[in-house]
């Protein structure tokens, strides 16, 4: 089923015209850009946010609500994948060389994940990168034939996948109930709250990514014995 040739001609032309106008628009915007509006405010307030790394403070404090919803998006994707059916059958077990390589790489990935989580407070890194490392570890395990990529049984998977969003949300609601306001961290403990959120988010992201790679609902133990 090939698209008609007229379309093949028309679309690039249209896109070219669109590109030129967009480029013009971008140039126009950049020329008017004084570069010191929101960025300055944000950088100035970073010390008050409980994290010293600007991106982390934006992500988890200034725009924490976005991150909360984003975790919900991840959860949605996972639940959507689960709704479609059971996971694919596992990969065959690896050869000897590969197995030893996996044995090396997986712990390294997990340790790196921990490291990235920890440095996130003051340097590049944080929940997403750390979660991605966990995810990579799980993917590696899956490729090496582990049927669940190192994940626990379904109820635990559910708990872990929802944990990040849940802790984030409950923290927001709890702070609101205590009189502080939704997602408003008290100055003194902000750092710790962010760390808790990041840690749980890391777990959730990692678990979600692995489960997404498995591509379906966790199989019950009986089916898994194959």
């Amino acid at each position: 089923m090939r698209p008609p040739s007229l379309l093949c001609l028309l679309v690039p032309l249209l896109l070219l015209a669109l590109g030129l106008s967009l480029g013009w628009a971008l140039g126009d915007g950049l020329k008017g850009y004084s570069g010191e509006r929101l960025a300055e405010v944000a950088l100035e307030l970073v010390p008050e946010s409980g994290a010293t790394h600007p991106v982390t403070s934006v992500l988890l404090n200034f725009r924490g609500y976005d991150t909360l919803l984003e975790l919900a998006v991840l959860l949605t994707a996972l639940l959507g994948i689960w709704s479609l059916g059971p996971a694919a059958p596992p990969y065959p077990p690896p050869g000897l060389v590969l197995a030893s390589l996996v044995g090396w790489v997986v712990p390294l990935l997990i340790i790196t994940g921990g490291y990235l989580l920890w440095v996130g407070a003051y340097a590049p890194g944080g929940a997403f990168q750390a979660g991605a490392m966990l995810g990579a570890a799980g993917v590696t395990l899956t490729l090496a034939g582990h049927p669940t990529g190192g994940l626990p049984a379904e109820p635990w998977q559910r708990l872990l996948a929802a944990l990040g969003t849940l802790v984030f949300l409950l923290m927001g609601l709890g702070l609101m109930a205590l009189g502080s306001g939704f997602l408003i961290y008290p100055k003194g403990i902000a750092k710790w709250l962010i760390l808790i959120i990041e840690a749980t988010a890391t777990l959730s992201i990692g678990v979600t990514l692995i489960a997404a790679f498995l591509g379906g609902r966790p199989m019950s133990l009986r089916n898994r014995s194959r």
């Binding site: 991106v55 990235l116 590049p124 890194g125 944080g126 997403f128 990168q129 991605a132 490392m133 995810g135 990579a136 993917v139 990514l209 997404a212 790679f213 591509g215």
Partner: peptide
């Protein structure tokens, strides 16, 4: 943008790639 480089390498290229490759 080292954060983004990290994330893109790990998620954008790494995991998306792994997902697509598997499929």
């Amino acid at each position: 943008a080292p954060d983004l480089a990290l994330t893109e390498a790990a998620i954008g290229a790494g995991l998306t790639g792994a997902l697509m490759l598997g499929a």
